[in-house]
Amino acid sequence: MSEYLLEIQDVNASYGPIQALRGVSMNVREGEIVTLIGANGAGKSTLLMTIFGDPQASSGSIHYRGQEITHIPMHEISRLGIAQVPEGRRIFPGMSVEENLRMGTMPIGDTHQETDLQTMFAMFPRLKERRSQRAGTLSGGEQQMLAIGRALMSRPRLLLLDEPSLGLAPLIVRQILSSLRTIADQGTTIFLVEQNANHALKLADRGYVMVNGEIRLSGTGEELLANPEVRNAYLGGH
């Protein structure tokens, strides 16, 4: 078994003529919080989706726990223990909060369903209050909590999140990020894609900076926070 939980090597991916990823290499160790920051359209979401096989990498390789997953179809990835909180949350708006959470156990079956449901309600009490409300009527922050909870219901080893802070008030962003801290402390490895570089880098052990489909910089959270290039580009020069 390799030293990395997730290892991406020299991956290229494109949408038709548009090349969205250019020779991307990065890795995540078990137990870490790793973040990927970059401007709009840099290719962050594409990288997350490439891990899930859509779009597939045209060259390069992706390994998860030593197993090559580059060409595994999307619906089989979640059974390996990777869960995704996609960009825009993508909860099931017509189902109730509780049903959304229960849907999350699809990849692993319902053995732990009841206990895990209680765990999620303990972690996000607001979801418990709204358990039989239609998910589409939740506020943005609550929907984000629901998306995270639903992903956790499959007991993932590796949790991928795509811009969970998007469009949320600063207070809610802090709540969400602190719950990510809790999740990580309980042993789930986290790979977090963010534009909100300040918060993400403070939370993360390590980070990568993506520009135009390439990894431009990498380092520990503190290193990147101190890096003048990062400060100029993503933190408004403060």
Partner: peptide, 24 residues
């Protein structure tokens, strides 16, 4: 049953379904 729920989930969000292990 899972199949029926998968139909309804698929109607609501295909990408979310696929990433949750449902073969669309």
């Amino acid at each position: 049953m899972p199949m029926g729920r998968a139909w309804e989930a698929l109607r609501e969000d295909e990408i979310a379904c696929r990433s949750m292990g449902i073969n669309h």
